[in-house]
């Protein structure tokens, strides 16, 4: 059964305590919205949930594969978008491109994409990752209104299929019944 548990998690960066005592318990179909000012540790919380960062205290348990949308898009800039995505998600590229309305850009080198297009390309990697736990760091950065709505719809579809989503953002994204995690 898909699940993500953060129990009493604390994070220290550079000798400074960013947050402590954070608890998040998500089961299939549930979502969490992480909010807070810049530098309060939203990205760190997501990296702890992904297993990239060891928490200073507390425990993290994940039941299911993780797809992480970080600050960097992890796509080779010199490659056409479709090929760069294929490295991570293989044959699910066309499905992922279609989900983000990126088909017209399939043959465009990643370096040529705009900020918003790159964000959508990063999101295409998540959609194609076939992982039940989505950890999204500022998925709406640089996106227009239609783009934000599309991300919200993708997250809703993912949850309806039994997935989990943790979204860190300072922009409003529609996440019905999401657990609110306020940092700072």
């Amino acid at each position: 059964m898909t699940a993500l548990r953060l129990a009493d998690v604390a994070c220290r960066r550079g000798g400074r305590e960013l947050f402590a005592g954070i608890g998040v318990a998500l089961d299939a179909g549930e979502a969490a919205l992480v909010s807070g000012a810049n530098g309060v540790g939203k990205s760190s919380l997501l990296r702890i949930a992904a297993g990239l960062l060891r928490p200073a205290a507390g425990t993290v348990t994940r039941d299911g594969a993780v797809a992480l949308l970080g600050e960097a898009h992890a796509l080779d800039p010199e490659l056409p978008l479709a090929r760069a995505l294929r490295f991570w998600i293989g044959s699910r590229v066309s499905m992922a491109l279609a989900a983000l309305a990126l088909e017209p850009l399939a043959e465009v080198p990643v370096a040529m994409l705009s900020t918003g297009q790159r964000r959508r390309a990063g999101m295409a990697r998540i959609v194609g990752a076939d992982a039940p736990i989505w950890l999204l760091d500022e998925p709406a950065n640089g996106l227009d209104k239609a783009g934000v709505a599309r991300i919200a719809a993708l997250i809703a579809t993912h949850r309806a299929a039994g997935g989990i989503a943790v979204v860190a953002t300072h922009q409003p994204i529609a996440l019905p019944d999401a657990l609110q995690v306020a940092l700072g």
């Binding site: 297993g51 594969a65 797809a67 992480l68 898009h73 992890a74």
Partner: peptide, 13 residues
Amino acid sequence: VEAGVIDQYVVRG
């Protein structure tokens, strides 16, 4: 490391 590729390897186990 900068492009987040290493992060993605780790997340994928």
